[in-house]
């Protein structure tokens, strides 16, 4: 059976009002079942997505210092020549080591690869995030003590 035929069959069944169809011939056996409702134990009402826990953003594990390329295309805006330091996890972003301490870095500061730039707290673990690049901090993209997503840009760094 060709992929197209299977697709047609599924289309047909989905319009048919049937919940489940089993077809068996000498050549093949196919079972198509509509996803009527996720069969969660005891779930009475269809579950709306809870507010909590934002899902991690799509694009997994893009190399941290990806967009540095340079040269290929003329910089459309200033931001193009900057490199982002991204959050390696979901958590809460802190700019200071402790509530009463000064920030790790401020706009205009120079950082070296390996310098701590912030803390991301996740699940009661405190993570000092090190910069993977050297350069000058040109922008801080997230407010202190606010939630961050996986791979969300935190700082823009001018590597030149």
């Amino acid at each position: 059976m060709k992929a197209k035929e299977i697709q047609d069959l599924i289309d047909f069944i989905s319009k048919s009002g049937l919940d489940e169809v089993n077809i068996e011939t000498e050549e093949f056996k196919i079972k198509v079942k509509k996803n009527t409702e996720a069969k969660v134990v005891q779930a009475a009402a269809p579950a709306p997505q809870p507010v909590a826990a934002p899902a991690p953003s799509a694009a997994p594990a893009e190399t941290p210092a990806a967009s540095s390329g340079g040269g290929e295309k003329p910089a459309a805006s200033d931001d193009d020549k900057y490199v982002a330091i991204k959050s390696p996890m979901i958590g809460t972003f802190y700019r200071t080591p402790n509530p009463d301490n000064p920030a790790f870095v401020n706009v205009g500061d120079s950082v070296k690869a390996g310098d701590t730039v912030c803390i991301v707290e996740a699940m009661k673990l405190f993570n000092e995030i090190e910069s993977d690049i050297s350069g000058k901090i040109v922008k801080i993209l997230v407010d202190n003590a606010t939630p961050v997503e996986y791979d969300q840009p935190l700082f823009l760094v001018d590597p030149s």
Partner: peptide
């Protein structure tokens, strides 16, 4: 209500 909710710490 049988709804499953997911939480981060805090």
């Amino acid at each position: 209500g049988g709804i499953y909710k997911k939480y981060q710490f805090k």
